[in-house]
Write a protein that binds this DNA or RNA. Structure first.
Length: 621
DNA sequence: AATTCCCGCCACGGG
DNA sequence: CCCGTGGCGGGAATT
């Protein structure tokens, strides 16, 4: 049996990391991967990967290449693989009953060391705007083919991501501020991805300079410093007045548009609104303009206020502004444009964000920029760059030249995916809800799970990201913003370099007990659970009962009591309603909006997992 | 206690 | 008046 490997509902362009991740697990690990189909066990490994192996060299998993790497790239380690993989997971999985489809999901759970606390820490994070944005972004390619249908229907998105509409607006607003999307009509957006990003940022930077944001920031910082350092006297005399001096008096900044992406529906161009959009743009400008590309929240908030409604008593205004900034920051963060850091200060630390350079910009503007082709990633990075490109080619649109032979079945696969995608995109999408909602929330669970895993990973593998104290300060006048820790990147390299990348030993050592998770019980060729065979990875005395798909199912969906069927407490499920006090409230409002036809039924059985270590999320069909 | 930021009420403007 | 938008701030969850 030959299986094609693909990652359902993750856009083709974003799949290669996942595939690479699988490959990087190493042959020995692949050996131990097993999948179950109707309780029948099949060996996985080569059947799946030989296929791809033809084009995607197994190189990465043989020689880690530990040498010097370019800073921005994660070292090629299982951990980073998993992280990539997880971040690429997406909720959108359409029913594809016709095709041979196998869903693979390996969940590595760590035994609850002392299982009591950490009971429900997931609830809030799992609803964060950043996470939501992640899920949203996974559905679309970074560089969409303009010829294709890149339509976005808010209703569909909201339904599929299982969130209130309101939240989608938040995301769309900041995406629009970067011209990653544009409103095409009511309830409709067009996806542009990152094709215009560099251009937009260039413009924003320019506008930012025109507005002298750099100077303004400097002033504010200055003020803050002396206010705090100088006997904290109350001489708050020097108002924010001179900020607006110059001919820019009250030259309110409106939405910065792009030549190409004008406002489509000639309706929306009113004044008042677009606040979030504009604020987002300003926020970004601050980064582009300030020299150490770090801006703290309060400074940003001050500037945004000062310019908006001049002469407005702060305090509450300030607080609100900061709230909005968090919102914006969260989506910028999931876009990987900024990252949270802290600036050192006498009074402890201040929250701040640091701009992350676009990989696009690293390659300068030495090539044609008109195509929809993503900028190459500079082969300098590492050997796996070739595999990367190749993987990309495997799934990208026809026409792109590829230097590898594409296996016939892969061609078919790629085509299939695209057809599928087309179908999805062109599906009727008025206020009509997705009919086949029977299984429509399964993907959500998957994504949720993966997302949760990601969070866990982020937290546990990057503990130094925000906690390191700056030991050196640039020679320039030490504005607080400059005292930023810059150790974030180097650390992982140092640590991980020590251990062989893609090492086989890593998995067993780190992720001991393995619990398979999922899945939906659709008839036909529904998804099936796959997991690493514990025995082959590590002799576990408490050898779990050989999980059948049934067992798996019950483990994740049928346990409402919070007690895992087979005595395991690693994975449970519960309904949103009984999960928290707020659930009651929500329930009520749900009932209130019952009548709305476009309102998706919010049954929200959420996974609760404790001590999640890492997860693999693969879909095969 | 401070920091984050989710949630959803409700206003606004177009149809 | 209805509905799509999205400003806004209470207050809960986290740190």
């Amino acid at each position: 049996m030959i299986f094609d490997v693909s990652i359902a509902s993750v856009h083709a362009e974003k799949r290669s990391p996942i595939i690479k991740s699988l490959l990087a697990l190493g042959p020995d690990c692949l050996d131990s991967i097993t999948y179950y189909c109707e309780d029948v066990k099949f060996p996985l490994r080569e059947t799946h990967f030989v296929d791809l192996g033809e084009s995607i060299t197994m190189g990465p998993l043989t020689t880690p290449k530990k040498g010097r790497e370019v800073g921005s790239v994660d070292p090629w380690t299982p951990t980073s693989n998993l992280k990539m993989l997880i971040s690429a997971a997406s909720p959108e999985i359409r029913n594809r009953e016709k095709e041979l489809s196998v869903l693979v999901c390996c969940l590595f759970l760590q035994e609850p060391e002392n299982g009591e606390e950490s009971e429900k820490m997931i609830s809030r994070k799992e609803k964060s705007l950043g996470l939501l944005c992640h899920k949203f972004l996974a559905r679309y390619p970074d560089y969409p083919n303009p010829a294709l249908n890149n339509d976005i229907c808010l209703d569909d998105v909201a339904t599929e991501l299982n969130v209130e509409r309101r939240r989608i607006y938040d995301i769309m607003n900041v995406l629009e501020s970067l011209h990653m999307v544009s409103r095409s009509a009511k309830n409709r957006y067009t996806w542009h991805g990152r094709t215009k990003l560099a251009e937009t940022l260039a413009i924003l930077k320019q506008v930012g300079e025109e507005h002298r944001y750099s100077q303004q920031m400097q002033q504010i910082r200055q003020r803050l410093v002396e206010k705090e350092f100088d006997f904290d006297g109350e001489e708050k005399e020097n108002e924010v007045v001179d900020l607006e001096n110059g001919e820019h008096g009250q030259k309110e900044l409106f939405f910065v548009e792009l030549p190409g992406v004008e406002f489509k529906a000639a309706s929306v161009n009113s004044r008042k609104d677009k606040s979030l959009r504009v604020m987002s743009q300003k926020f970004v400008m601050l980064f582009l303009v300030s020299n150490p590309r770090v801006v703290s929240l309060d400074v940003a908030a001050k500037i945004l206020i000062g310019e908006d409604q001049a002469a407005d008593q702060d305090k509450n205004k300030f607080k609100t502004k900061v709230r909005r900034l968090y919102d914006i920051a969260n989506v910028l963060r999931s876009l990987k444009l900024i990252e949270k850091v802290h600036v050192a200060e006498e009074r402890g630390r201040k929250p701040a964000f640091e701009w992350l350079e676009l990989p696009e910009n690293l390659a300068l503007n030495s090539e044609n920029t008109s195509t929809a082709c993503p900028p190459k990633k500079k082969g300098v990075l590492e050997p796996r760059a070739s595999a990367d490109n190749c993987a990309k080619n495997l799934f990208s649109s026809p026409g792109t030249k590829r230097s590898f032979t594409r296996h016939p079945s892969l061609i078919k696969l790629a085509k299939s995916i695209q057809d599928d995608r087309r179908k999805i995109n062109s599906a009727p999408s008025s206020p009509v809800k997705s009919d086949s909602s029977v299984n429509s929330d399964f993907p959500n669970k998957m994504a949720q799970l993966a997302a949760i895993c990601k969070i866990e990973l982020d937290q546990e593998s990057l503990p130094t990201r925000t906690s390191v104290e700056p030991s050196h300060i640039p020679l320039q006048p030490p504005t607080q913003e400059q005292a930023v820790n810059t150790t974030a990147n180097p650390i992982p390299h140092a640590l991980l370099a020590a251990q062989p990348s893609g090492s086989v030993a890593y998995i067993p050592a780190q992720c001991s007990p393995l619990i398979p998770v999922l899945l939906p019980q659709q008839r036909g060729s529904g998804p099936y659970a796959v997991y690493l065979n514990p025995s082959s990875l590590r002799s576990n005395p408490l050898a779990r009962p050989q999980p059948t798909s049934l067992a798996v199912r019950s483990m994740t969906f049928e346990d409402k009591t919070g007690q895992s069927p087979n005595g395991q407490s690693a994975a449970k499920s519960y309904t949103a309603a009984d999960a928290s006090p707020s659930g009651v409230k929500r329930l009520r409002s749900e009932l209130a909006s019952e009548g709305s036809p476009s309102k998706a039924k919010r049954s929200d059985p959420t996974f609760k997992v404790r001590k999640l270590k890492c997860a693999i999320y693969v879909i095969i069909w």
